[in-house]
Amino acid sequence: MPPRDPKLENLLSGVAGGDEAAFAELYQATASKLLGVAIRILRNRELAEEVLQEAFFKVWERAGDYNSSIASPITWMATIVRNRALDEARRRVIRPSGDESELENIESGDEHPIAALERAEDVERLLRCLDGLEPEKKEIVRLAYLDGLSREALAARFNRPEGTIKTWLHRSLALLKGCLEQ
């Protein structure tokens, strides 16, 4: 079972019923986090805001499809944002450039200490499992998931053939899966 989030679940069910106030509250509660997700992948605020706009439009239209036994609300919404952002990134072939000044503030400090305290148990478990990977492999998973790097981009970044990256990825993911199932 995915972690429960009664507040966001209620808001989503309100949105499914066409409740505009619930939609406004849902936006308030999640937009900053989701924009953070989109900007990390797209490296461009304007583009990321466009993706966020489309994603919230989709949330408004599809809230009725949300099923709390399949995903937590934030995972469901983040998946919509990530898929849109990744499609856009692949379409435009966004690669990490030498100039990352725009992202310095975003990518530097990992997160606020208070946020770390408030992290849910499932986050802790995933991070523990990630820590079980070799540092380079852990970095690859994070760069792929959070920054949207493709196999090709990872190969260039780590100076390895794409086949090697693929093997590393599959091994790391299998280890993660096994660790999370313990």
Partner: peptide, 28 residues
């Protein structure tokens, strides 16, 4: 999606432009 979804929690939030919500509202 459920296994890796928690990684999103480690992303630093970025406040959207003030007019973004109005754009979404207008679209809806």
């Amino acid at each position: 999606e459920n296994r890796l979804g928690s990684l999103v929690e480690t992303v630093s939030p970025v406040a959207p432009s003030p007019n973004l919500y109005n754009k979404i509202r207008a679209q809806i």
